[in-house]
Design a protein around this nucleic acid. Structure first.
Lengths: 197, 197
DNA sequence: CGAGCGCTTGATTGAGTTCAAAAATCGTGG
DNA sequence: CCACGATTTTTGAACTCAATCAAGCGCTCG
Protein backbone atom coordinates (compact mmCIF):
# COMPACT_ATOMS: atom_id res chain seq x y z
CA UNK A 1 0.00 0.00 0.00
CA UNK A 2 2.95 2.25 0.69
CA UNK A 3 3.89 1.85 -2.95
CA UNK A 4 0.99 3.79 -4.30
CA UNK A 5 1.51 6.41 -1.62
CA UNK A 6 5.11 6.72 -2.70
CA UNK A 7 4.11 7.18 -6.33
CA UNK A 8 1.49 9.71 -5.35
CA UNK A 9 3.77 11.56 -3.02
CA UNK A 10 6.78 11.75 -5.28
CA UNK A 11 4.66 12.92 -8.18
CA UNK A 12 3.78 15.90 -6.03
CA UNK A 13 7.03 16.66 -4.28
CA UNK A 14 10.03 15.48 -6.31
CA UNK A 15 11.72 13.97 -3.27
CA UNK A 16 14.47 11.46 -3.99
CA UNK A 17 13.93 7.82 -3.05
CA UNK A 18 16.34 8.23 -0.16
CA UNK A 19 14.59 11.28 1.19
CA UNK A 20 11.26 9.56 0.86
CA UNK A 21 12.51 6.51 2.70
CA UNK A 22 14.01 8.57 5.48
CA UNK A 23 10.67 10.03 6.43
CA UNK A 24 8.37 7.13 5.69
CA UNK A 25 9.98 4.53 7.89
CA UNK A 26 7.47 5.25 10.63
CA UNK A 27 4.38 5.38 8.40
CA UNK A 28 1.70 2.86 9.24
CA UNK A 29 -0.63 1.33 6.74
CA UNK A 30 -3.60 -0.89 7.29
CA UNK A 31 -6.47 -2.71 5.64
CA UNK A 32 -9.85 -1.95 7.14
CA UNK A 33 -13.12 -3.48 6.19
CA UNK A 34 -16.24 -1.74 5.04
CA UNK A 35 -17.92 0.08 7.89
CA UNK A 36 -14.82 0.63 9.99
CA UNK A 37 -14.90 3.99 11.68
CA UNK A 38 -11.55 5.76 11.56
CA UNK A 39 -12.52 9.01 13.24
CA UNK A 40 -15.33 9.69 15.69
CA UNK A 41 -17.17 12.96 16.14
CA UNK A 42 -15.72 14.54 19.27
CA UNK A 43 -12.28 13.01 18.91
CA UNK A 44 -9.28 15.01 17.88
CA UNK A 45 -8.10 14.09 14.43
CA UNK A 46 -4.48 12.95 14.57
CA UNK A 47 -4.09 11.54 11.08
CA UNK A 48 -4.74 12.18 7.47
CA UNK A 49 -5.80 9.05 5.67
CA UNK A 50 -4.33 8.28 2.30
CA UNK A 51 -6.48 5.82 0.37
CA UNK A 52 -4.39 3.41 -1.67
CA UNK A 53 -7.40 1.23 -2.43
CA UNK A 54 -11.06 1.54 -1.54
CA UNK A 55 -13.34 4.37 -0.52
CA UNK A 56 -13.78 6.53 2.58
CA UNK A 57 -16.22 9.25 3.50
CA UNK A 58 -16.47 11.98 6.12
CA UNK A 59 -19.82 13.05 7.53
CA UNK A 60 -21.59 14.70 10.44
CA UNK A 61 -24.62 13.53 12.36
CA UNK A 62 -26.98 16.29 13.44
CA UNK A 63 -29.28 16.55 16.48
CA UNK A 64 -32.07 14.75 14.64
CA UNK A 65 -29.75 11.85 13.86
CA UNK A 66 -29.37 12.66 10.18
CA UNK A 67 -26.09 12.13 8.38
CA UNK A 68 -24.64 14.85 6.19
CA UNK A 69 -21.80 13.68 4.01
CA UNK A 70 -19.01 16.20 3.71
CA UNK A 71 -16.56 14.38 1.50
CA UNK A 72 -15.66 11.19 -0.30
CA UNK A 73 -12.13 9.90 -0.83
CA UNK A 74 -11.25 7.12 -3.26
CA UNK A 75 -7.86 5.88 -4.51
CA UNK A 76 -5.07 8.45 -4.28
CA UNK A 77 -7.06 10.87 -2.22
CA UNK A 78 -6.33 12.09 1.25
CA UNK A 79 -9.10 12.67 3.73
CA UNK A 80 -8.99 14.09 7.24
CA UNK A 81 -10.41 16.84 9.40
CA UNK A 82 -7.94 19.61 8.82
CA UNK A 83 -9.61 21.96 11.31
CA UNK A 84 -9.44 19.39 14.05
CA UNK A 85 -5.80 18.46 13.50
CA UNK A 86 -4.63 21.99 12.93
CA UNK A 87 -6.45 23.61 15.84
CA UNK A 88 -6.43 20.55 18.10
CA UNK A 89 -10.18 20.75 18.40
CA UNK A 90 -12.67 17.93 18.80
CA UNK A 91 -13.82 16.96 15.35
CA UNK A 92 -17.32 17.53 14.01
CA UNK A 93 -16.79 14.63 11.66
CA UNK A 94 -16.93 10.91 11.42
CA UNK A 95 -14.73 9.20 8.87
CA UNK A 96 -15.51 5.63 7.87
CA UNK A 97 -15.00 3.09 5.11
CA UNK A 98 -17.63 2.68 2.39
CA UNK A 99 -15.68 -0.24 0.93
CA UNK A 100 -12.92 -2.48 2.26
CA UNK A 101 -10.05 -0.02 2.15
CA UNK A 102 -6.27 0.13 2.33
CA UNK A 103 -5.05 3.17 4.15
CA UNK A 104 -1.76 4.89 4.84
CA UNK A 105 -1.86 6.84 8.08
CA UNK A 106 -0.17 10.19 7.76
CA UNK A 107 0.67 11.79 11.08
CA UNK A 108 2.13 15.07 12.28
CA UNK A 109 5.66 13.65 12.42
CA UNK A 110 5.57 12.79 8.79
CA UNK A 111 4.12 16.13 7.77
CA UNK A 112 6.72 18.00 9.78
CA UNK A 113 9.58 15.91 8.49
CA UNK A 114 8.42 16.31 4.92
CA UNK A 115 7.95 20.05 5.32
CA UNK A 116 11.41 20.22 6.84
CA UNK A 117 13.28 18.68 3.95
CA UNK A 118 11.18 19.68 0.98
CA UNK A 119 10.14 23.07 -0.31
CA UNK A 120 7.93 21.43 -2.88
CA UNK A 121 6.09 19.57 -0.15
CA UNK A 122 5.23 22.83 1.56
CA UNK A 123 4.13 24.30 -1.74
CA UNK A 124 2.10 21.23 -2.49
CA UNK A 125 0.41 21.39 0.87
CA UNK A 126 -0.42 25.02 0.28
CA UNK A 127 -1.86 24.19 -3.11
CA UNK A 128 -3.95 21.45 -1.53
CA UNK A 129 -5.36 23.95 0.97
CA UNK A 130 -6.28 26.34 -1.81
CA UNK A 131 -7.88 23.53 -3.79
CA UNK A 132 -9.88 22.58 -0.76
CA UNK A 133 -11.13 26.13 -0.35
CA UNK A 134 -12.02 26.36 -4.01
CA UNK A 135 -13.96 23.11 -3.85
CA UNK A 136 -15.83 24.09 -0.70
CA UNK A 137 -16.70 27.48 -2.08
CA UNK A 138 -18.12 25.96 -5.25
CA UNK A 139 -20.17 23.64 -3.13
CA UNK A 140 -21.52 26.46 -0.97
CA UNK A 141 -22.46 28.27 -4.12
CA UNK A 142 -24.23 25.19 -5.46
CA UNK A 143 -26.09 24.59 -2.22
CA UNK A 144 -27.20 28.22 -2.14
CA UNK A 145 -28.92 28.11 -5.47
CA UNK A 146 -29.16 24.84 -7.32
CA UNK A 147 -32.12 22.47 -7.57
CA UNK A 148 -31.87 18.78 -6.75
CA UNK A 149 -31.38 17.97 -10.42
CA UNK A 150 -28.65 20.56 -10.91
CA UNK A 151 -26.81 19.28 -7.86
CA UNK A 152 -26.91 15.72 -9.11
CA UNK A 153 -25.77 16.67 -12.60
CA UNK A 154 -22.92 18.61 -11.07
CA UNK A 155 -21.93 15.64 -8.97
CA UNK A 156 -21.85 13.11 -11.79
CA UNK A 157 -19.83 15.39 -14.00
CA UNK A 158 -17.28 16.12 -11.29
CA UNK A 159 -17.10 12.58 -9.91
CA UNK A 160 -18.14 10.28 -12.78
CA UNK A 161 -15.97 7.46 -11.51
CA UNK A 162 -17.51 7.56 -8.05
CA UNK A 163 -21.13 7.66 -9.13
CA UNK A 164 -21.40 3.91 -9.56
CA UNK A 165 -19.41 3.02 -6.48
CA UNK A 166 -21.26 5.11 -3.95
CA UNK A 167 -24.73 4.03 -2.81
CA UNK A 168 -27.38 6.45 -3.98
CA UNK A 169 -28.55 7.33 -0.52
CA UNK A 170 -25.05 8.55 0.27
CA UNK A 171 -24.91 10.68 -2.85
CA UNK A 172 -28.28 12.10 -1.81
CA UNK A 173 -26.85 12.90 1.60
CA UNK A 174 -23.86 14.62 -0.03
CA UNK A 175 -26.21 16.69 -2.17
CA UNK A 176 -28.46 17.66 0.70
CA UNK A 177 -31.55 15.89 -0.65
CA UNK A 178 -33.43 12.72 0.33
CA UNK A 179 -32.82 9.34 -1.34
CA UNK A 180 -36.40 9.41 -2.61
CA UNK A 181 -35.84 12.72 -4.34
CA UNK A 182 -32.63 11.51 -5.91
CA UNK A 183 -34.38 8.42 -7.19
CA UNK A 184 -37.04 10.60 -8.79
CA UNK A 185 -34.47 12.94 -10.28
CA UNK A 186 -32.71 9.99 -11.89
CA UNK A 187 -35.97 8.63 -13.22
CA UNK A 188 -36.79 12.00 -14.73
CA UNK A 189 -33.35 12.26 -16.32
CA UNK A 190 -33.69 8.76 -17.76
CA UNK A 191 -37.08 9.65 -19.20
CA UNK A 192 -35.51 12.62 -20.92
CA UNK A 193 -33.09 10.12 -22.38
CA UNK A 194 -30.12 11.33 -20.45
CA UNK A 195 -27.22 8.86 -20.46
CA UNK A 196 -24.77 9.38 -17.62
CA UNK A 197 -22.67 6.31 -18.47
CA UNK B 1 -6.26 53.72 6.87
CA UNK B 2 -2.84 52.13 6.84
CA UNK B 3 -2.73 52.64 10.58
CA UNK B 4 -5.42 50.14 11.34
CA UNK B 5 -3.85 47.73 8.89
CA UNK B 6 -0.55 48.14 10.69
CA UNK B 7 -2.16 47.39 14.04
CA UNK B 8 -3.97 44.41 12.59
CA UNK B 9 -0.93 43.11 10.82
CA UNK B 10 1.53 43.50 13.65
CA UNK B 11 -0.85 41.84 16.08
CA UNK B 12 -0.67 38.80 13.86
CA UNK B 13 2.96 38.74 12.84
CA UNK B 14 5.19 40.47 15.40
CA UNK B 15 7.14 42.35 12.75
CA UNK B 16 9.11 45.35 13.95
CA UNK B 17 8.06 48.81 12.83
CA UNK B 18 11.04 48.97 10.51
CA UNK B 19 10.26 45.65 8.92
CA UNK B 20 6.65 46.65 8.51
CA UNK B 21 7.60 49.93 6.90
CA UNK B 22 10.05 48.26 4.55
CA UNK B 23 7.35 46.18 2.95
CA UNK B 24 4.38 48.54 3.13
CA UNK B 25 5.87 51.46 1.26
CA UNK B 26 4.16 50.29 -1.92
CA UNK B 27 0.78 49.51 -0.38
CA UNK B 28 -2.14 51.44 -1.80
CA UNK B 29 -5.19 52.43 0.15
CA UNK B 30 -8.38 54.00 -1.07
CA UNK B 31 -11.81 55.18 -0.07
CA UNK B 32 -14.58 53.79 -2.22
CA UNK B 33 -18.23 54.62 -2.00
CA UNK B 34 -21.11 52.26 -1.48
CA UNK B 35 -21.78 50.20 -4.56
CA UNK B 36 -18.27 50.34 -5.98
CA UNK B 37 -17.30 47.06 -7.58
CA UNK B 38 -13.76 46.00 -6.72
CA UNK B 39 -13.68 42.65 -8.48
CA UNK B 40 -15.73 41.48 -11.45
CA UNK B 41 -16.74 37.92 -12.21
CA UNK B 42 -14.39 36.72 -14.95
CA UNK B 43 -11.48 38.92 -13.92
CA UNK B 44 -8.42 37.52 -12.25
CA UNK B 45 -8.18 38.59 -8.64
CA UNK B 46 -4.91 40.44 -8.05
CA UNK B 47 -5.56 41.83 -4.59
CA UNK B 48 -6.79 41.00 -1.18
CA UNK B 49 -8.82 43.82 0.30
CA UNK B 50 -8.25 44.78 3.90
CA UNK B 51 -11.22 46.73 5.27
CA UNK B 52 -10.12 49.46 7.67
CA UNK B 53 -13.62 50.97 7.73
CA UNK B 54 -16.87 49.96 6.10
CA UNK B 55 -18.25 46.75 4.68
CA UNK B 56 -17.60 44.62 1.62
CA UNK B 57 -19.17 41.48 0.28
CA UNK B 58 -18.34 38.81 -2.30
CA UNK B 59 -21.04 37.12 -4.34
CA UNK B 60 -21.79 35.20 -7.50
CA UNK B 61 -24.52 35.79 -10.06
CA UNK B 62 -26.00 32.63 -11.54
CA UNK B 63 -27.51 31.97 -14.98
CA UNK B 64 -30.92 33.15 -13.83
CA UNK B 65 -29.46 36.44 -12.62
CA UNK B 66 -29.70 35.62 -8.94
CA UNK B 67 -27.06 36.77 -6.49
CA UNK B 68 -25.57 34.35 -3.99
CA UNK B 69 -23.54 36.03 -1.29
CA UNK B 70 -20.42 34.11 -0.35
CA UNK B 71 -18.89 36.34 2.28
CA UNK B 72 -19.07 39.63 4.14
CA UNK B 73 -16.06 41.58 5.37
CA UNK B 74 -16.27 44.42 7.86
CA UNK B 75 -13.54 46.26 9.76
CA UNK B 76 -10.29 44.33 10.18
CA UNK B 77 -11.28 41.62 7.79
CA UNK B 78 -9.64 40.64 4.57
CA UNK B 79 -11.65 39.56 1.58
CA UNK B 80 -10.53 38.28 -1.78
CA UNK B 81 -10.89 35.34 -4.13
CA UNK B 82 -8.07 33.12 -3.01
CA UNK B 83 -8.67 30.53 -5.73
CA UNK B 84 -8.47 33.12 -8.43
CA UNK B 85 -5.30 34.76 -7.15
CA UNK B 86 -3.57 31.51 -6.28
CA UNK B 87 -4.40 29.63 -9.46
CA UNK B 88 -4.53 32.68 -11.73
CA UNK B 89 -8.01 31.72 -12.80
CA UNK B 90 -10.89 34.01 -13.78
CA UNK B 91 -12.89 34.65 -10.65
CA UNK B 92 -16.40 33.37 -10.07
CA UNK B 93 -16.97 36.27 -7.71
CA UNK B 94 -17.91 39.88 -7.59
CA UNK B 95 -16.67 41.94 -4.69
CA UNK B 96 -18.33 45.26 -3.95
CA UNK B 97 -18.94 47.78 -1.18
CA UNK B 98 -22.10 47.61 0.92
CA UNK B 99 -21.12 50.83 2.68
CA UNK B 100 -18.65 53.60 1.92
CA UNK B 101 -15.44 51.76 2.66
CA UNK B 102 -11.77 52.37 3.27
CA UNK B 103 -9.59 49.68 1.81
CA UNK B 104 -5.94 48.67 1.85
CA UNK B 105 -4.99 46.82 -1.31
CA UNK B 106 -2.75 43.86 -0.57
CA UNK B 107 -0.93 42.54 -3.60
CA UNK B 108 1.37 39.66 -4.42
CA UNK B 109 4.49 41.74 -3.85
CA UNK B 110 3.47 42.50 -0.33
CA UNK B 111 2.56 38.91 0.43
CA UNK B 112 5.83 37.63 -0.96
CA UNK B 113 7.89 40.23 0.84
CA UNK B 114 6.13 39.54 4.12
CA UNK B 115 6.53 35.78 3.71
CA UNK B 116 10.17 36.35 2.94
CA UNK B 117 11.05 38.18 6.12
CA UNK B 118 8.62 36.70 8.60
CA UNK B 119 8.04 33.15 9.74
CA UNK B 120 5.07 34.26 11.76
CA UNK B 121 3.49 35.77 8.67
CA UNK B 122 3.68 32.44 6.90
CA UNK B 123 2.23 30.72 9.93
CA UNK B 124 -0.49 33.30 10.18
CA UNK B 125 -1.36 32.88 6.53
CA UNK B 126 -1.55 29.13 7.03
CA UNK B 127 -3.82 29.59 10.03
CA UNK B 128 -6.03 31.89 7.98
CA UNK B 129 -6.35 29.22 5.31
CA UNK B 130 -7.34 26.63 7.89
CA UNK B 131 -9.84 29.01 9.43
CA UNK B 132 -11.32 29.62 6.04
CA UNK B 133 -11.72 25.89 5.45
CA UNK B 134 -13.29 25.42 8.83
CA UNK B 135 -15.77 28.20 8.24
CA UNK B 136 -16.70 26.94 4.78
CA UNK B 137 -17.16 23.40 6.03
CA UNK B 138 -19.47 24.54 8.79
CA UNK B 139 -21.46 26.46 6.26
CA UNK B 140 -21.73 23.47 3.93
CA UNK B 141 -22.92 21.44 6.86
CA UNK B 142 -25.52 24.06 7.72
CA UNK B 143 -26.74 24.35 4.15
CA UNK B 144 -27.05 20.57 3.92
CA UNK B 145 -29.44 20.27 6.80
CA UNK B 146 -30.73 23.39 8.47
CA UNK B 147 -34.08 25.12 8.05
CA UNK B 148 -34.43 28.81 7.23
CA UNK B 149 -34.87 29.62 10.91
CA UNK B 150 -31.84 27.62 12.02
CA UNK B 151 -29.70 29.29 9.38
CA UNK B 152 -30.76 32.74 10.52
CA UNK B 153 -30.21 31.97 14.19
CA UNK B 154 -26.76 30.65 13.35
CA UNK B 155 -25.99 33.81 11.42
CA UNK B 156 -26.99 36.24 14.15
CA UNK B 157 -25.06 34.36 16.78
CA UNK B 158 -21.91 34.21 14.66
CA UNK B 159 -22.16 37.76 13.29
CA UNK B 160 -24.21 39.74 15.83
CA UNK B 161 -22.44 42.97 14.96
CA UNK B 162 -23.17 42.60 11.27
CA UNK B 163 -26.84 41.76 11.57
CA UNK B 164 -27.94 45.38 11.86
CA UNK B 165 -25.58 46.72 9.25
CA UNK B 166 -26.39 44.36 6.43
CA UNK B 167 -29.67 44.79 4.55
CA UNK B 168 -31.99 41.89 5.21
CA UNK B 169 -32.21 40.83 1.60
CA UNK B 170 -28.44 40.33 1.58
CA UNK B 171 -28.56 38.22 4.71
CA UNK B 172 -31.27 36.18 3.01
CA UNK B 173 -29.03 35.74 0.00
CA UNK B 174 -26.16 34.62 2.25
CA UNK B 175 -28.44 32.09 3.91
CA UNK B 176 -29.82 30.74 0.65
CA UNK B 177 -33.41 31.82 1.29
CA UNK B 178 -35.64 34.56 -0.13
CA UNK B 179 -36.08 37.97 1.55
CA UNK B 180 -39.78 37.16 2.07
CA UNK B 181 -38.94 34.00 3.93
CA UNK B 182 -36.43 35.81 6.12
CA UNK B 183 -39.00 38.47 6.93
CA UNK B 184 -41.44 35.77 8.02
CA UNK B 185 -38.80 33.95 10.04
CA UNK B 186 -38.03 37.15 11.92
CA UNK B 187 -41.69 37.82 12.51
CA UNK B 188 -42.12 34.33 13.88
CA UNK B 189 -39.11 34.73 16.17
CA UNK B 190 -40.43 38.05 17.44
CA UNK B 191 -43.81 36.48 18.16
CA UNK B 192 -42.09 33.83 20.20
CA UNK B 193 -40.55 36.71 22.11
CA UNK B 194 -37.07 36.14 20.86
CA UNK B 195 -34.81 39.16 21.40
CA UNK B 196 -31.74 39.15 19.19
CA UNK B 197 -30.48 42.53 20.41
C1' DC C 1 -41.78 65.73 -1.99
C1' DG C 2 -41.96 61.94 -4.87
C1' DA C 3 -39.53 57.99 -6.90
C1' DG C 4 -37.30 54.04 -5.74
C1' DC C 5 -35.79 50.66 -2.73
C1' DG C 6 -36.38 47.61 1.04
C1' DC C 7 -39.43 45.34 4.09
C1' DT C 8 -43.80 43.26 5.13
C1' DT C 9 -47.95 40.69 4.35
C1' DG C 10 -51.14 37.75 1.88
C1' DA C 11 -52.46 34.22 -1.45
C1' DT C 12 -50.96 30.69 -4.28
C1' DT C 13 -47.85 27.41 -6.09
C1' DG C 14 -44.39 24.04 -6.20
C1' DA C 15 -40.15 21.43 -5.20
C1' DG C 16 -38.87 18.43 -2.07
C1' DT C 17 -39.96 15.80 2.36
C1' DT C 18 -42.22 12.40 4.84
C1' DC C 19 -44.46 8.20 5.46
C1' DA C 20 -45.49 3.78 3.78
C1' DA C 21 -44.92 -0.18 1.14
C1' DA C 22 -43.43 -2.79 -2.83
C1' DA C 23 -39.60 -4.13 -5.89
C1' DA C 24 -34.88 -4.88 -6.73
C1' DT C 25 -30.30 -5.84 -5.29
C1' DC C 26 -26.81 -7.43 -2.26
C1' DG C 27 -24.38 -10.46 0.65
C1' DT C 28 -23.88 -14.33 3.40
C1' DG C 29 -24.32 -18.82 5.25
C1' DG C 30 -25.86 -23.32 4.43
C1' DC D 1 -24.69 -21.96 -6.02
C1' DC D 2 -28.90 -21.05 -4.23
C1' DA D 3 -31.98 -19.08 -0.80
C1' DC D 4 -33.23 -15.97 2.43
C1' DG D 5 -32.83 -11.83 5.12
C1' DA D 6 -31.20 -7.23 4.97
C1' DT D 7 -30.31 -3.21 2.69
C1' DT D 8 -31.14 -0.16 -1.09
C1' DT D 9 -33.98 1.73 -4.55
C1' DT D 10 -38.31 2.77 -6.41
C1' DT D 11 -43.04 4.27 -6.41
C1' DG D 12 -47.17 6.43 -4.55
C1' DA D 13 -49.82 9.75 -1.85
C1' DA D 14 -50.19 13.34 1.44
C1' DC D 15 -48.10 17.09 3.29
C1' DT D 16 -44.96 21.14 4.29
C1' DC D 17 -41.65 24.53 4.02
C1' DA D 18 -40.16 27.83 1.31
C1' DA D 19 -40.59 30.19 -3.35
C1' DT D 20 -43.18 32.95 -6.21
C1' DC D 21 -46.33 36.46 -7.44
C1' DA D 22 -48.55 40.56 -6.13
C1' DA D 23 -49.73 44.51 -3.51
C1' DG D 24 -49.07 47.97 0.02
C1' DC D 25 -46.31 50.48 3.34
C1' DG D 26 -42.53 53.29 4.96
C1' DC D 27 -38.29 55.32 4.65
C1' DT D 28 -34.55 57.90 2.62
C1' DC D 29 -32.15 60.52 -0.27
C1' DG D 30 -31.81 63.06 -4.35
Amino acid sequence: MLDSFKIYFQSKTNLTDDQFLSITDTLQSKKVEKGTILLHQGDICHHSFFVSKGLLRSYTIDETGKEHIIQFAAENWIISDRSSSYFHEPSELFIDAIEDTEIVFIDKNFINAAAEISVSFREQDNTALHNHIRQLQKRVNLLLGATAEQRYLDFITIYPSLTLRIPQWMIASYLGITPETLSRVRKELAKRNFKPY
